[in-house]
Write a protein that binds this DNA or RNA. Structure first.
Length: 217
DNA sequence: ATCCCGAGGG
DNA sequence: CCCTCTGGAT
């Protein structure tokens, strides 16, 4: 990778997806946080089908903190990993109530300390809430595209994030995640990437490689 | 069978 | 490092 190529990739992605943004539905910080926790190993689409009923029943941090586990599990069952997620959400809300006056914190360090919140989730919440990311959220799409486009040769999310930061302007960190995720869902898919109609093909080292097993890290 | 905006525990 | 948790779509 080099600065010229990375700038070009960012420019092309922005041109293709000028409206790229977090695709989770939310109206408050706690809703964003809960939706992001639910999105683990699930699709944003499925999360968005699940959250309306959930947010109708639980509105505030305190509502989630005093939620009944079994009741919460039932409401989020369709997103998968529901027992872990229900427990995470309740413990997450309790910690915010205890340590942050029932307000979702907006720094990466504070978010990462909360139960159920790892590096990726913390980056999403921090970036979307503030508009300026302290880091870059590395999910399965960002991992795959970073590898295919030549931003990284590492497979550890932490190292991938560092590699991306080297080439992307910090003002683009939040946008970059959304751009890569969007492109990953629509074109550079895990199984059958549509290289024939990809506007990044000219700068992509992996273009046209049909064996998708070798494309994924 | 594989994948989806992962985290926690061993 | 590895494993488990989980359901729905493809």
């Amino acid at each position: 990778m080099n600065k010229t190529t990375s700038s070009r990739i960012v420019r092309l992605l922005k041109r293709a997806y000028p409206d790229a943004a977090c695709s989770l539905d939310f109206k408050s910080p706690i809703q964003l946080a809960v939706a992001t926790i639910l999105s683990a190993q699930s699709t944003d689409e499925r999360v968005n089908l699940t959250t309306p009923a959930l947010f109708r029943k639980y509105k505030t941090v305190k509502d989630f903190a005093r939620a009944e586990g079994s009741e919460l599990e039932l409401l989020i069952k369709a997103v998968g990993l529901y027992r872990n997620k229900a427990k995470s959400i309740i413990e997450f809300a309790k910690a915010i109530q205890r340590d942050h006056k029932s307000r979702v914190p907006t720094t990466l360090a504070e978010l990462e300390k909360l139960p159920g919140v790892g590096r990726k989730t913390a980056n999403v919440i921090q970036g979307v809430l503030t508009g300026r990311g302290e880091g870059i959220a590395v999910d399965t799409h960002v991992t795959r595209l970073s590898f295919r486009l030549g931003f990284t040769k590492n497979k550890e999310p932490k190292k991938i994030e560092q590699d991306l930061k080297k080439w992307i302007d910090s003002s683009d960190w939040v946008m970059m995640s959304h751009l890569l995720i969007r492109h990953g869902r629509e074109v550079c898919k895990a199984r059958k990437p549509i290289c024939e109609s990809c506007f990044l093909a000219e700068v992509c080292p992996k273009k046209g490689v049909s064996n998708t097993k070798r494309l994924s890290p």
